[in-house]
Amino acid sequence: MEEFNDSDISSLLNQIAGSSPDTLMAHKAVLGKVRRVRQRRVMAVSAAAVVMVVSGAVAMVQNSNNRDGGSNIAVPLSPGDSQPIKVATTIGLSVTTTTIEGSISIDPIVTDPSASIPSTQPSSNSTTPSNIGNATTTTPTNTQAPTNSQGPLVTTDPSNNPTPTTTRPPSTTPPASSPGVTTPPVTKAPILTSPPTTQPEATSPPTTRAPVTSPPTTQPAVTTPPTTVPELKTWTCGGGSVKYRVTSNGLVLAETTPAPGFTISENKAKADEIVIKFVSNSKNDERKSALKIIRSGLVSTSCEDENFNSRSDSEDSESNDNNEESADD
């Protein structure tokens, strides 16, 4: 250690090192730098916190938007989209759907071109057994039933007197009596009884319907199932009207109601398209109506009436009445 001691070298190097620097000024400078560094750190942390909060808020907004919809479709497709005002009417409809899924597989209304059935009366539908069947046409078999039953209906329709009031009672117009009588508007009972071999369950519905009709009146007002039933929509043409629903699986034909003097000439009900054609019962009357409901993203409806301008005066009055009814609907 002492071997390295050299006063000359030490003095020389101390000269090169210079005088002592100003410690006070240097200390202030150091404290200022420390303060700036800490401020930068605080700003960085606060900026990171702000970014996290903003990103969290954006994520929440995006989640809420995804939950609300993304639904550009005009019709409600999800259960949460149903209007709260329609809860009272959808309670009965929901009950009928749940019960008929297990018991009835045929839609009676589609098979019946009766013109006297009220088109839009959900409350009355829930009270009568036949109308309960009207409300449920969700299974594919229901859509096939009308095509099978159109044959007999056409043969029984030659009479040109579609009197809605006389054909109202559905139970008194079985298929056996239809040839002699006027058009049987309601064939719910015949359909249920005519195919006993193919559908043994069809004979049992009376037993199941009785408990089914009572629950709508006794059920509590607030239940979650009603929101699952889509809204029943009506589209009216000169030759008649159609009631349908738009579900997540597609279009469901609920009811087809020809106008007085008209009958159904074509009935196609698919998931993405419903085509109903009405023709006049009269041989001299060439009026036709084609009603189409197409669902491709949005649901679009169209109505084509032919030869409605070349009607006689009496037919005009009838059609006016018909239009009024459809307008009421």
């Binding site: 090169i16 090192a17 210079g18 620097p21 410690t23």
Partner: peptide
Amino acid sequence: FNLHYARLVRSLTVICGNSEEAADAVQ
């Protein structure tokens, strides 16, 4: 700082040959 700043700056001045650079490094 008060005890060692001046010594450090002077030593580093010898090392680097520049007192300002040495002061900056010590600070």
